[in-house]
């Protein structure tokens, strides 16, 4: 299959406000696609539409060859996993129990939960009740649960929020491993540099539209970023890595 996820002409309107307008997004198996953009650009709305949580005002999301509007809850749960932005913090279950919940919709997969928990550095917290964890730890537990769902598509809305820099790198590296398994990750990032070092492709949103789309060199361009973020930006190379900095 050449394309796993295909969103065509996605528009989402609330009253007179166009939260998203004519957005096209596609992702191939094994790709890590970073969705970038300033606050209010429509990143979370896009994830919600791709997840099937919102119904587009117009346009269509096709996942694995089927329109997601035609898929029921169970089928969708086998095709895509979602890490949303808001997570309740009063979960009474333990970390191990919550991660195991990710396997609920799976059929016949023998993924080792411990390996995923170790990858997200939560294995040592296995017996702790989730509500007693810090925000960053809870995010890592949620990530482990989402990855355990073992779906071809993984949608992540700000997976690095509340994570320290070491855990950010650890999560990003594991997302690369997930992609090497042939799964597709579409993730919203606020940290342009974290995205720059690990994503295959970038979608830069601005005011509900795609401002730029393509490789790091095409999207993380000082001129493009300066225009979209409304602040002068610089893009410099340090070794192999592209680094974006706010200009003086």
């Amino acid at each position: 299959m050449s394309v796993l996820l295909l969103a065509r002409e996605l528009t989402y309107r609330v009253g007179d406000a166009h939260l998203l307008h004519g957005v096209d997004v596609s992702a191939k198996p094994g790709e890590l696609v970073a969705v970038l953009g300033p606050n209010g650009a429509g990143k979370s709305t896009l994830i919600n539409l791709l997840a099937g949580d919102l119904e587009p005002t117009s346009g269509e999301v096709v996942l694995g060859g089927d329109s997601i509007s035609a898929l029921d809850h169970r089928r969708l749960a086998r095709l895509r996993a979602v890490l949303g932005q808001t997570r309740p913090n009063d979960n009474p279950f333990t970390v191990a129990e919550v991660v195991a919940m990710g396997a609920h919709s799976r059929r016949g997969s023998d993924m080792d939960l411990t390996l995923v928990m170790e990858a997200m550095d939560v294995a040592h917290l296995a017996d702790r009740v989730v509500a007693t964890l810090s925000g960053g730890e809870q995010t890592r537990v949620s990530l482990a649960r989402v990855l355990v769902q073992a779906t071809p598509l993984v949608l992540l809305d700000e997976p690095l929020a509340a994570l320290d820099i070491a855990h950010q790198e650890r999560v990003l590296k594991h997302l690369r491993v997930v992609c090497e398994e042939g799964r597709t990750v579409v993730a919203v990032f606020h940290d342009l540099n974290a995205a720059a070092g690990h994503a295959d492709r970038f979608v830069l949103l601005s005011a509900g539209e795609v401002a730029a789309e393509g490789s790091a060199d095409e999207v993380l361009d000082a001129e493009v970023l300066s225009r979209v973020y409304g602040h002068p930006m610089e893009a410099v190379r340090i070794g192999q890595r592209l680094v974006v900095l706010p200009a003086e």
């Binding site: 997840a51 949580d53 809850h73 969708l76 749960a77 086998r78 949303g84 997570r87 919709s105 769902q149």
Partner: peptide, 8 residues
């Protein structure tokens, strides 16, 4: 929402 994402 999370439960819905797991097929409930």
């Amino acid at each position: 929402r999370e439960a819905g994402h797991l097929g409930i």
